[in-house]
Design a protein around this nucleic acid. Structure first.
Lengths: 140, 140
DNA sequence: GTCTAGATGAGAAAGCTTCTCATTTTCAAT
DNA sequence: ATTGAAAATGAGAAGCTTTCTCATCTAGAC
């Protein structure tokens, strides 16, 4: 099991909760999870874990650069595997579906703007909100 | 007082709390306020208001299109006067300073991306996080 | 001035997240 | 394999922001 050594390399003990959560990110159907999603999925699966542990592990994984944290308009935090390449999000305001995209031109202009205003950029987040194709046709 | 009639035109009674809050947005030193900011400023000023009222009024103002709500990475909501023209934000991660900018090219590309993915865009938010010039020199 | 729908303030409560602490587990050294 | 110390866990308490409830109060039409 290579996740085991991945964690150890980060100075984290390879415990059940950590392995399970990492596994979820790597093999899950979707890429984006709230802490609640993870807690629910694992406990429904019969795996005994506390919500506090979920939050703790997510924070550690984020510090370690393993995952990335976003925050959408509803205020809840969303986590996703950090696969190295940056991307932004399109969120369906009706069904919550999340899609990703990258646009080099937008990236470039962001840096130009930050520089012009005298900022040293550390991060940025762009989210587009809209109604997805599916929700447009299946109106309710 | 024209704010009085502004509110009435929106179907809102011109009450003390509403007038005070609207005034803050119009004449305040900064453009961006959290609910807490508003509550603190007004009560420190000797104006008696409840935090619940602040939230209620902000929600109403937002529904009425008078102000706009954003959410930065710390999860708290920030409100600003809606002056019609859209803009994005650069936030200093150290001192919390917020600056605004608009970039037509970024705006345009966002719409293209949403359309390409089949979304009908309703909103979008772009925030750049970094360290402002002041915080770069006055390190602590 | 009176009346009524609407607004308010206080406190309770909800939702997400973090903290505390007693117990348990990992893992390096035996 | 056993041990021991440091680290991790789960449960519940608690913190923060935001919303809800409800008795009281007020704006504005008459």
């Amino acid at each position: 099991m290579s996740n085991d050594s991945d964690l150890k390399r980060l100075g984290l003990k390879a415990t059940g909760p950590r392995l399970k959560i990492l596994e979820m990110f790597e093999q899950g159907a979707t890429r984006h999870y709230t802490a609640e999603d993870i807690y629910k999925t694992l406990t429904d699966d019969g795996f005994d874990i506390g919500i506090a542990t979920v939050y703790r592990v997510l924070t550690q994984f984020e510090s370690a650069g393993l995952i990335t944290k976003h925050r959408f308009e509803d205020g809840r935090a969303i986590y996703e595997l950090n696969d190295g390449d940056h991307h932004d999000h399109v969120v369906c305001v009706q069904c919550g579906r999340v899609e990703e995209f990258v646009d080099q031109e937008i990236e470039k202009r962001q840096h130009e703007i930050a520089t012009r205003l005298g900022y040293v950029i550390t991060d940025h987040s762009l989210s587009i909100y809209g109604v997805c194709q599916h929700c447009q046709t299946h109106k309710n």
